[in-house]
Design a protein around this nucleic acid. Structure first.
Length: 563
RNA sequence: UGGGGUGUGGCCAAGUGGUUAAGGCACAGGGUUUUGAUCCCUGCACUCCCAGGUUCGAAUCCUGGCACCCCAGCCA
């Protein structure tokens, strides 16, 4: 059973081969986020990949913060990342790891490179370094500091560490090949000087910080990682990853494997851009329900199971593509359809008076909580002579394609009676403000003989029993499927393509009373409309619901087609 | 000829020289239905970026093109 559910992809094939050949007998992976922002759906793909492999192969996956740049990192991000990984349902081995835990060892390995003549302290300025590096097509040239003696380099590096030099005045570089076709091998930087910033883990203990290309392979090796999985843009760094491990005294040599990062339609998945959306106020925060962050989709009502399923469905390859929103949304709907209890809510109310129903009478109609699953039980919904229906569920006249309430015609109220519309009340502007209808007695659960045939089924809420609520109708954040590409092409910026209608706030909604006691995060299906969750930030007073995703709406298509 | 990658239906993706090129999403048609939802059928690549070649046999091997992505942070 688990065999057929096991995802298969080129990385798992490599692992299978390594296990079969005896290269490894235990698998270890790692998820190495930099705590400089919130995690997004693209990270979910990496998390599902790395932690999923650990689970399926009974190995381990370390959560490791890649925290070598104190300028951009902080504890808020550390905490958020931990929460997001946990929310997705994954467990890291023993404890969270930090690259900063290895600063001592990293320094020792760097010193080892210096002593073996494979690294040197360079005093070129940033601009000079760039010039010396050459270009994509032209080789670089050696730094004048390249042939310093080992003794001098040891001395200089120690003094760098001791804080004797200013920021930017010196760096430690690997001595590889300034003419290498791969620019990453042209004497890459290993350490830089950073005074004055407190690191969230190590405080002011260090004034030199190792670069990613040096830190990453060493951290992986120290943790005994077998497969170091990263995204495609690091492919060019693999020779350097290998060079580092081949030139220091460490046994373990993990295999770096690259896969393509996730691209999703109608959104952006880059930390820089997401940070900009937050800092420039285009959204309300990292957890704005329109954001593709884990925090955002969580608040939007997505579930961990749906996210993991999505990650499985998109697969893992080296080819770059853009996944359609429809795939994400459908994965969610599939789960919510099975798990969300049904309720009725009128979002844009139109009052309807039932003229032949006794004014003081209230009856409780029985409504199943899930039409396909009796174990969800039933609830009682109060019905009386005054109800609200959805404004768009009434038209004075319509062709037979319109299966809702029409003047003079009949419709069924969900789980209740058949009604027939007799009269339309309008205000001075000609706006419909009230409907007057007759109900067919004895039509609950059946259609009595002689009763008018209902055109369809519409939802409703009792005027006297309904509760007021705010409902936030969220839509895609961007109006263009690929905001980045569009901005590039048209000489604009990606924020020019934000969807102005990504949030429609409905404040006059009426919910059935069964929705009075709900807790943050709970998800319901509002029948005929979609899935809605209780907003996590509004736990008191009038309930606030976020629309997670609409129901599939084929009517919207036909209505548009036929007018 | 800077280097490194990728090209299978609208989207994602199996496929690793040998039956009619999996599957999911999307789309189209039909059935069930007190949610225009769900569910259930049916259809949807004589062809795998292109052109040659090897082979009894090629999406898979070879050669040559083409297209697209990534790389010149003291970011990761």
């Amino acid at each position: 059973m688990s065999e057929s559910n096991m995802p298969t992809n080129f990385i798992r094939q490599i692992i299978d081969e390594d296990l079969a050949s005896g290269k490894h007998d235990k698998i270890a992976t790692r998820f190495p986020p930099e705590p400089n922002g919130y995690l997004h759906i693209g990270h979910a793909k990496a998390i599902a990949l790395n932690f999923g492999i650990a689970e399926d192969y009974q190995g381990r996956c370390n959560l490791r913060f890649d925290d070598t740049n104190p300028h951009k990192e902080n504890m808020e991000f550390v905490a958020a990342i931990e929460e997001d990984v946990r929310w997705l349902g994954y467990q890291w081995a023993d404890k969270p790891y930090y690259a900063s835990n290895y600063f001592d060892k990293l320094y020792a390995f760097a010193l080892e490179l210096v002593k073996s003549g494979k690294a040197y302290v360079c005093e070129l300025s940033a601009d000079e370094t760039r010039e010396y590096r050459g270009s994509l097509k032209q080789p670089g040239k050696d730094s004048p500091f390249r042939k310093r003696s080992v003794e001098e380099n040891v001395d200089q590096f120690e003094r760098m560490k001791n804080g004797e030099f200013e920021d930017g005045s010196k760096v430690l570089r690997a001595k590889i090949d300034m003419a290498a076709a791969n620019i990453n091998m042209r004497d890459p930087m290993l350490y830089r000087i950073r005074h004055g910033v407190a690191h969230h883990q190590t405080g002011k203990a260090w004034c030199i910080y190792p670069m990613y290309d040096f830190t990453h392979p060493v951290s992986d090796a120290l943790e005994g990682i077998t497969h170091s999985i990263c995204t495609l843009e690091f492919e060019d760094h693999r020779p350097l990853y290998d060079w580092v491990l081949d030139n220091i005294s460490i046994e373990c040599h993990p295999q770096q494997i690259e896969f393509s990062r996730l691209n999703l339609e109608y959104t952006v998945l880059s930390k820089r851009k997401l940070t900009q959306l937050v800092s420039e106020g285009f959204v309300e925060g990292w957890d704005d329900p329109r954001m593709p962050t884990i925090a955002g989709i969580r608040r939007r009502g997505y579930t961990p199971a749906a996210m993991r399923e999505f990650c499985q469905r998109i697969g893992v390859t080296k080819s770059e593509g853009t996944v359609e929103m429809a795939l994400l949304e459908n994965t969610l709907r599939e789960e919510l359809n099975v798990n969300a209890p049904r309720r009725m809510a009128v979002l844009e109310p139109l009052k309807l008076v039932i003229t032949n129903y006794p004014a003081g009478q209230v009856e409780e109609v029985v409504s199943p909580n899930h039409p396909q699953n009796e174990s969800f039980g039933v609830r009682k919904t109060p019905f009386c002579n005054e109800i609200y229906i959805e404004q768009e569920d009434f038209r004075e006249e319509a062709n037979k394609k319109y299966k809702r309430l029409v003047m003079g015609k009949a419709v069924r109220l969900r789980n209740a009676y058949i009604i027939q519309c007799d009269e339309v009340v309008k205000d001075t502007n000609g706006e419909v403000i009230e409907l007057r209808c007759r109900y067919v007695p004895d039509s609950i659960g059946q259609t009595p003989e002689g009763a008018p045939k209902p055109r369809g089924v519409i939802h409703w809420v009792s005027v006297r029993h309904g509760i007021n609520a705010e409902v936030r109708m969220y839509d895609r954040l961007f109006a263009h499927p690929s905001p980045d590409a569009a901005a590039n092409k048209e000489g604009k910026v990606f924020t020019d393509f934000l969807n102005p209608n990504s949030l429609r706030n409905l404040t006059r909604c009426v919910l059935e009373p069964a929705l009075a006691q709900v807790s943050p995060g709970e998800v319901f299906q509002f029948e005929r409309q979609g899935y809605f969750c209780v907003d996590a930030h509004h736990t008191h007073g009038q309930p606030v619901f976020n629309r997670t995703v609409s129901l599939r709406d084929t009517w919207a298509k036909t209505d548009k087609k036929h007018g």
